[in-house]
Nucleic acid binder design. Structure first.
Length: 290
DNA sequence: TGAGCGATCCGGCGGC
DNA sequence: TGCCGCCGGATCGCT
């Protein structure tokens, strides 16, 4: 499942592959057309397949950037700028190819839902096995308020202060620390995998109340989150279940995860425990994490 | 007013 | 082997 480092990997390869190219036509899968006809919001948000295709036609992709776990396609047509916001959900993937059969893995090829045909003849394809991802065409970030509510990028200078300030508020002080750090308004792009890892590395129990952790430890936790995210970006992301970059390649970070998905603590050998926090499974070592 | 919960987008997979 | 139920990012709407 793609988190911030995986999305960063996609953007780093997508930006040079897509920038400067103009979209000639759009194909939307029958599956999505059917879902949308049943009034579901499958992948295409707040727009019909026909309107999406009509508006995207003729758009030039000027740049591709990342904000938290969102991919921003910066677009221009007739002198106006637009933004296509892509979230990969659980299992989304982009592929830049010349023919669809260049998408080697059957499980992705079977679930290609949107294809951008480029004026130069190439293709940009969005595949999504579970259809939890989204494509949202807007004018600018301000058209979709949740985008404006996101925490600063974790590598920004302001991110640590933002995190520590919110930890002190009554809203977050009573919540389990894992729920706090996975809230995108508190820290951008820290999902289950990297939250689990950073908590293990700092010896903090995922269920500990945020307000019961010293500012010093919270500062160390934030630094560790940033460290883990940075390591994962360098390793090309973690390919837990369905992450692939635009060339269909998996990342290598999963081999370096020390707690996520583990049965035994790599530090002391104790059997790991799991608990549900904010509806998600959390793994931790009952001996090393307090 | 806002916190909290359930529903919603689904296919894959573990378990029986 | 087939079917049921669980899982999960993020948002939204209801209580």
């Amino acid at each position: 499942m793609p988190e911030l480092p995986e999305v960063e990997g996609v953007v780093r390869s997508l930006a040079p592959a897509a920038s400067g190219r103009t979209i000639r036509d759009i194909a939307v899968s029958d599956t999505i057309i059917k879902s949308k006809s049943e009034a579901k919001e499958a992948i295409l948000k707040n727009i019909s397949p026909e309107e999406f295709a009509g508006r995207m036609r003729g758009m030039t992709i000027t740049d591709v950037t990342r904000r938290s776990k969102y991919i921003y396609f910066h677009l221009r047509k007739d002198g106006d700028t637009h933004l296509l916001v892509s979230h990969l959900g659980m299992s989304g993937a982009w592929f830049a190819v010349n023919e669809m059969d260049e998408v080697k893995e059957e499980k992705f090829r079977r679930h290609i839902h949107v294809i951008f045909g480029m004026e130069d003849g190439g293709l940009l394809a969005y595949a999504d096995i579970r259809r939890f991802g989204e494509l949202r065409l807007i004018g600018a970030e301000s058209d979709h308020p949740p985008l404006l509510a996101m925490a600063p990028e974790p590598f920004d200078d302001s991110a640590a202060g933002h995190f520590l300030d919110l930890c002190k508020t009554s809203k977050y002080a009573g919540k389990p620390i894992k729920e706090t750090i996975m809230d995108g308004k508190v820290i951008s792009g820290c999902g289950n995998i990297y939250a689990t890892e950073a908590l293990f590395r700092t010896g903090i129990h995922p269920g500990r109340k945020t307000g019961r952790i010293s500012l010093k430890r919270l500062g160390l936790l934030f630094a560790e989150i940033r460290q883990v995210l940075g390591e994962a970006i360098e390793a090309g992301g973690s390919s837990i279940s369905d992450y692939r970059n635009i060339n269909g390649e998996a990342g290598g970070m999963q081999d370096r995860l020390r707690m996520y998905g583990r049965q035994y603590c790599p530090a002391c050998g104790t059997a790991t425990k799991r608990m549900t926090i904010a509806g998600r499974t959390s793994v931790y070592c009952p001996k090393c994490q307090h």
